[in-house]
Amino acid sequence: MDFVAWFDINNTLVNIPIGGGYAMSWIEAVGTVFGLLCIWYASQEKTINYVFGLINVTLFAIIFYQIQLYGILLLQFFFFCANLYGWYAWTRPTSDSGDMLEVRWLSKQKLAVTAAVSVVAIGLMTVYIDPFFFALANITVDGLNLFGADLARPTLEPDAFPFWDATMTVLSIVAQILMTRKYVENWMLWVVINVISVGIYAAQGVYALSIEYAILLFIAANGTRAWMKTAKQNQAKQLTTEKEAVA
């Protein structure tokens, strides 16, 4: 197989008999596998998840470029940077004594601020999602054309589910940031995101993606359970250390 052709979304790996039939490309299949590995290893608190995450977002960025979803393409750039930061944060000592970042809960103050910012951001994006992404897509195309891409400005239809789309986008960003800091709440947000995604993709007839997000929903639920247990253990260990220091 030609190396460049491997990245073509029309290079079909398998035809899946879902709905009216779904031709899954090589790049989508491999990108999906790395995405599932990323989420699974993150739920196990394994730093290697960021290696798989970097591969996943790179491959999906190529896919979104080919199908002209430039807003989501730019979101992949954010996830790429977040994966790099997460890799750094998970492997860097947080103190001179060599302590590493531990799984924990958000403080009440941080939780309140995060919730407030998320609600405002979702509200604003719901109202302005169409003009924002229309402008973003055109700016992206113009920028790519400066480097000789020779792309025509895309003709975009209004968002099919503006509120749910905005919710998934904002919560995905918040959840990714919380994951890089090892906050348990990130998995709870991924559960919400995946529930919405399963419904939205099924409603749009993209059944393969709906099934994928159902799998991710299971992994996120398992991640919630595992990290809650770890956070409880870390909290108990911290209290024991503080009591010993006082004594």
Rank of each mutant, 00 (worst) to 15 (best):
F77N: 03
A116R: 02
V170W: 02
A149F: 03
V141F: 01
A137D: 08
F134R: 11
P154H: 01
A149W: 02
A149V: 04
F80H: 02
T155I: 13
V174N: 00
P154S: 05
L146Q: 11
Y183D: 01
P154T: 00
F132N: 07
F147R: 08
D99E: 15
A152S: 13
S107L: 02
W164L: 05
D150M: 05
A149Q: 07
D99H: 13
T94H: 08
A115T: 15
K110H: 14
R104A: 05
T91M: 07
M179F: 13
G143D: 10
G148Q: 02
Y88E: 04
T155A: 12
A152N: 11
V119C: 03
G123S: 10
N138K: 10
G86D: 07
P154L: 00
V117L: 14
D142G: 13
N83L: 14
D159Y: 09
T140G: 01
V117E: 11
T169C: 12
M179S: 08
E102G: 09
M168P: 09
F147A: 09
L106A: 00
K108M: 14
S107P: 01
G86M: 06
F79E: 02
T140E: 00
K108Q: 14
R153C: 06
K182G: 00
G123N: 09
V113E: 07
P131L: 05
A112N: 10
L101T: 10
D150N: 11
R181G: 10
Y88L: 09
I173L: 15
E102Q: 15
A149L: 06
F133P: 03
V141W: 00
